[in-house]
Computed example of a mutant assay.
Amino acid sequence: MKLGYHLGYWSSGPPADALEVIRTAEELGFDSVWTAEGYGSDALTPLAWWGAATSRVKLGTNIVQMSARTPTAVGMTAQTLDHLSGGRFILGLGASGPQVVEGWYGQPYPRPLARTREYIDIVRKVVARKEPVTYDGDFFQLPLHGGTGLGKPLKSTLHPLREEIPIYLAAEGPKNVALSAEICDGWLPLFFSPKSDGFYRAALAEGFARPGARRTPGEFEVAASVPVIVHEDVEAAAALIKPSLALYIGGMGAKTVNFHHDVFARMGYEDVADKVQDLYLAGRKAEATAAIPTSLVEDTALIGPPEKIRDELARWEETVVTTLLLRGDAATLRAVAPILS
């Protein structure tokens, strides 16, 4: 498996050591560097700013939220970053969830899979620049229906460096995972576990089997964000990850719609996920964190002494994952790289 570095999105401000870590990742031979966005820092500006200090590593977004920008705007940005990086850009897209889509962006959330299909169709048309872009979909129309009547089909003035830029889709549910295999070049899972490999293989296989599927399994990339903490005390390492898991399981979504909660329920932790969610939504965050067993952390992360991590890595190497996306500072990357290489 290849290694990547996931910078993620910022908390209250930009991480002071981001440039050092990205340069370290490239120095260590990492394949890719990724950024993210929630409802604070965006994914594209940091990638361009810090990515300018690199020369080899691929630069990806994990993820750009589709509701934040029109598909033509994303196509323009993808072309621009691809030129600036010399053809190293990977466009990672995701639908996010209704709380962010409707609460932050003021956009409708229903039918996210159908909306995603149209969105990616348009992005590819913009990047390819074969002809003026027209589209007559349920969600997007170019030119716009019912406007002034003055809109006309346009073609990007920018000539593409590559007529096809890789597009990866962030997905957690089986239908969305299948969609990634059908229309994209890669999948960006969150909270992947080797225990769930069979479930995701089946979802991907469904997508690959659809007429007109874009890639074969051997051509398809799966870049999974996996926490890795080298520590002699497994419980201490798990304790560093549990607060983040409590946030996602308990608070990243509504009571009735939380895709992260559903991932862990499918993994066999439904009772735990329900308890964590109830506690978190009641404001009892410390108790929610304490309710997460270390076994759940170990199912979705690589933690503990180096020899333990090496042994457990074998399970990951047998999965659909092609790239492990790591988090941490420069020292963490230097410590982890020899273990995972």
Rank of each mutant, 00 (worst) to 15 (best):
T256C: 01
R69Y: 09
E131S: 13
D299R: 00
R201S: 06
K195N: 05
A95E: 10
D262S: 11
S55E: 15
A238C: 15
S11P: 13
R214P: 12
A265W: 07
S295N: 04
G173Q: 10
G250Q: 00
K125Y: 04
P305V: 08
G4K: 08
D274Q: 12
Q107T: 09
V297E: 05
D17H: 09
I22F: 08
T134V: 13
L91I: 01
D299I: 00
K58I: 02
I63P: 08
W187M: 07
K255V: 15
A286F: 11
T24I: 12
A36L: 11
S341C: 14
G198R: 06
R23H: 05
K130Q: 13
A239R: 11
W316N: 01
K175V: 01
R210W: 00
D17P: 04
V74R: 01
S196P: 02
A205Y: 07
L144P: 15
V272I: 13
R69E: 08
P293M: 08
A290P: 12
T322S: 14
L326R: 07
T80H: 11
Y105V: 09
D121Q: 06
G149S: 00
A114Y: 03
D17R: 08
V320H: 08
T148A: 14
S156A: 14
T216I: 05
I167T: 06
P174H: 07
W34N: 06
E312Y: 11
V100G: 09
P305S: 11
G151K: 00
V101D: 13
K255Q: 13
A178I: 01
A273P: 06
D17S: 07
L240Q: 15
K152G: 00
L161C: 12
F30A: 03
G186F: 06
F89M: 12
A246F: 08
H6I: 07
E26K: 09
G29Y: 11
L19F: 08
A209E: 03
A314C: 04
R315P: 01
Q277M: 15
A335W: 14
K308A: 13
S180Q: 09
A171G: 04
A213P: 05
S55P: 10
L281G: 05
G103A: 06
K2Y: 15
G4N: 09
R327T: 11
